[in-house]
Amino acid sequence: MSNKNDNWLYIISPKKKLIDLNLKEIWYYRDLLILFVKRNVITVYKQTILGPLWYFIQPLFTSIIFTLIFNNMANIPTGEGVPSFLFNLAGITSWNYFKECLTGTSNTFAQNQGLFGKVYFPRVIVPLSVVLTNLVKYAIQLLVFIGFYIYYVFFSETLVTAKPQSAIVFLPILIIIMGFLGLGLGMIISSMTTKYRDLKFLISFGVQLLMYGSAVMYPLSYFKEKLPNISWVVEYNPMTTIIEAFRYMTLGVGDFSLVKMLYTTLICILIFLIGLIVFNKTEKSFIDTI
């Protein structure tokens, strides 16, 4: 009897391991991942007239409003030779990517209850598909950003001295880090909400508050100058570093140092790992508690 145990294909048992990420299985389900991404992208704006144009409209209008209120009215400086509209667009685009990753993954279990209750597939496929979907959106929005950049440099009368820095080669890494942070936080929140619904309320206004603490519509240096006592809240927020770094890479303004990047990367990876562990623990039995 005992020598037979070796040739079982797999064993279903109560979960004990901390991280039980079956990469082979995820690879097997890669088609599903792609189909989910496709579904997410094409179904969002089905039966709308403007269709994918909505991807552009939302960040554009937010940037215009931000420019009017924070720069024209409240006179927040955006740096020498950097149009405040471009400054805001850079911040909003990146912030949106993080925000959508976070909110999109944070209701993984609640939203897919019906599906998860009936069929098995590696659950992590769903949050992954959300992040990939947002990556597509982000890419489209980056195009808009580049478009306006070109417009300001070549066709605008205002003097634009903003220049992309050589550090821009690290942009893909920055995007990956941002995705990891959103995914990690989202997985933690989605796992916790299966049992304790309290977090659902936190996330809706928490994300909004977090935006004000992430240097989206103001430069970190200005915040430090005005509110030196509480500036550490913004300074040690990993999203601040990411957004500042993004603006430094593309516009040449902002706070960028290797030490801070390293710190942020570590934090993001840590949060991602915690998210993975919590998600992993939840996925096997959440259907009983949700």
Binding site: W8, P14, F116
Partner: peptide, 14 residues
């Protein structure tokens, strides 16, 4: 069908 896990015990399959 692996939708939920067992509390104790095992299922082995080939």
């Amino acid at each position: 069908s692996k939708v939920t896990g067992p509390t104790t015990g095992e299922i082995k399959t080939k």
